[in-house]
Amino acid sequence: MSNRMGLEISKLRKELGITQKQLGKIMGVSESFIIDVEAGRRILNEDLVKRFSKALRGEVGKLDIYEAEEKVYRSEPQKNIVKVVEKPVQDIWNDALAGVLMTVPVYNYKMERQAELKQLPIINNKVEGFAKDKVFYLVIEDNDMAGFRILNGDRVLVHSTHEMDKDGIFFIDYKGVRTVRQIKNIEGGKLLLISNKGSLVTDTAYRKDVKILGRLIRLEIML
């Protein structure tokens, strides 16, 4: 019986595309426990079978996982009624992925937060190599950088910084206008601001007149 149930659990887990370690995190058990269950080395009680069914969104051991979230268990007829409210599956998934993925905010040029949200993996407590609170997505609002294949409506991942340690493409505030430009250092404390809307356009500005808002690190093209 335990071997058959272990095979069912393994099959459903693989269909959902999750690892034994991830399933263990959802269930609140170790990865080795999941391995033993799938290998038929563990005998599951009724409570564990129900927990597996709920987590895997499938039918394990002929138990219906789409039961109402509120269940009533009676230890004796007419006595000791205990109401148990089970945690929704989506909440279980969110808890399991909380330390793996980060929700990154999306802003327009005015830095007004958009309803859209994006998620990126957290690696060594960083996102794309930067502190988690120093990255955001920016919605491109014009075609000034079309020559660089950055078009109106595209999303770019930005490292929030006010420093320009090397040449690159930056989100800036220049003469009261927020825009995206390629910037190069030139002599005399000046910067070369470059745009390309079909043809290359350059503008020379003093460094003190250009406020760096962030450095573009990745482009996501909208298809």
Rank of each mutant, 00 (worst) to 15 (best):
F52T: 02
E46F: 14
W93V: 12
D47K: 13
L44R: 06
D91P: 05
W93Q: 09
V89D: 00
L44M: 12
L44F: 06
Q78V: 06
V89N: 06
D64N: 14
P77G: 08
V89A: 01
I65K: 02
A68W: 01
A68Q: 09
L97D: 05
A55S: 08
R51D: 09
D95T: 06
E86G: 13
L44D: 01
K87M: 14
E69Y: 03
D95S: 10
L48S: 07
G58W: 08
K79S: 14
A55W: 11
V60Q: 04
R51E: 15
K83T: 09
V72A: 13
K54Y: 04
I65P: 05
Y66M: 12
L44K: 04
D47Q: 12
L97M: 09
D47I: 12
V49H: 11
I65W: 02
R57K: 09
S53K: 02
V89I: 02
E46Q: 14
D91G: 01
V85C: 12
E46N: 13
R41E: 09
N45Q: 02
D64Y: 07
I81L: 03
Y66D: 11
V49N: 03
G58H: 06
P77S: 08
E67S: 15
Q78P: 06
R57T: 06
E67T: 12
N80A: 14
K62R: 07
V89L: 04
Q90R: 08
G61R: 06
